[in-house]
Design a protein around this nucleic acid. Structure first.
Lengths: 225, 225
DNA sequence: TCAAAAGTGTTAGATTTACACCCATGA
DNA sequence: TCATGGGTGTAAATCTAACACTTTTGA
């Protein structure tokens, strides 16, 4: 190690994950009670320390995998949080990431093993340290992202009805959307494919199921909801 | 220190600054030749290590102040960059920040002392380590920010002509703007105040100087350029 | 038979874009 | 006098938002 480095001090670096889900028409996030000191028992995001042999994105992916058993989740960095006193124990800089998952893909048994729960986004309790700040920023970025790229599908099953899709966008935007205008816009998006399958769980009449065609999207390029 | 922390490894954390300026109708950023190993002699962003007794935002502000002698610059975090091998020497996670400054506010003597130069944004050379990635992301965020909040003024003198303002927005967006439509939009923004002062440096006829009124903006709330 | 969700077009208003000429001045 | 940048309005096109009724079917 050269003198250039050694004259400076090192800190711990961790990652914290804001995991968004969508269920029963509501936006949710995954939180749990902290099992260690400091802050034992407080509501908290799930996280972990970055190891010396892994990049920060790799660390976030590892932590997400440990928690959910899922790979290739949609994940984006929220930013670094590094106030001196943010961690009551030691100096820790934490890098927040948000991820979008389909609630149904997450094995409920595994979820309970980790002691985490889906809570409604707008009934979020106070969280450990600066986690509320992280969640706030994650939400803002996620909202922007979903409005400009078709990643909302990551929160739904691979087959979904237009009403489900509308409810999702309503939950993300926090305001109701006109049904006819919404469907008109969807019809213009060639990468949302209608199938011949019908979902009967949401209504007596039944609704057509749609699917997102990633290939068609890549060719397309225009998105605006 | 509790066992909880000590079983994990620490890393160095640094900040790197993408400093945007606007001069002669072009968007510029401030870079210099690295004066230390590793990477001595390569073009690089200006940065520094985060100290154990300062937050990361404080570190960025300190580094900006060291370099420019300016306080209260408009500054935002770009994100954390933490690939294992991003720094050829040791494991360093770096947090990038971008700042907007008025080129004329930066004392040229001080600039030379630090050995940094204003280079045209679209003639950027290859930079040290992952600094090009940082610049790319900073540019994207800055563009978004300037389109949604009136912070572009931070790149101009406090008195400016409408043509200067238009050139700035053109440089940021990378495409020409219709003069009449632009001025129409500006007229609707009450927080851009016309003064009685006239700038004769840009034309024979002279052009009215305008100023940004922050107070009027805060009351206003609507911005869209 | 009726409650509940699915599905479907049109129109007015707002926003955005395109476009061309006269003005004032210093060289 | 002429070259240069400063300043101004209108009309067409596009986009957005508002709005109500019919269909299907299980309970």
């Amino acid at each position: 190690m050269t003198a250039f480095y050694s004259e400076h001090s090192q800190v711990w670096v961790s990652v914290d994950c804001i995991i968004f889900g969508f269920d029963e028409g509501k936006l949710k996030i995954l939180i749990g009670r902290r099992k260690m000191d400091p802050g034992r028992g407080e509501w908290s995001l799930y996280g972990g320390f970055v190891r010396s042999d892994e990049g920060i994105d790799d660390a976030a992916n590892r932590v997400l995998y440990e928690l959910t058993g899922l790979r290739n989740l949609f994940m984006r960095q929220v930013g670094a949080f590094g106030n001196v006193d943010r961690d009551p124990g030691e100096r820790v800089v934490s890098i927040a990431y948000y991820a979008l998952i389909n609630v149904k893909d997450y094995d409920d048994h595994l979820r309970k093993e980790h002691g985490v729960e889906w809570v409604n986004f707008d009934e979020l309790p106070q969280l450990y340290s600066d986690h509320n700040k992280m969640v706030f920023k994650a939400r803002k970025l996620m909202k922007q992202k979903i409005a400009s790229e078709p990643v909302g599908f990551r929160l739904l099953p691979s087959l979904f009805t237009l009403t489900q899709l509308q409810r999702l966008y309503e939950a993300v935007n926090g305001e109701p959307i006109d049904k006819r205008n919404f469907r008109k816009r969807i019809k213009d998006m060639d990468f949302i494919e209608k199938t011949e399958l019908i979902d009967k769980t949401g209504s007596k009449r039944g609704a057509f199921l749609y699917r997102f065609n990633k290939r068609a999207y890549n060719e397309d390029t225009n998105f605006k909801l």
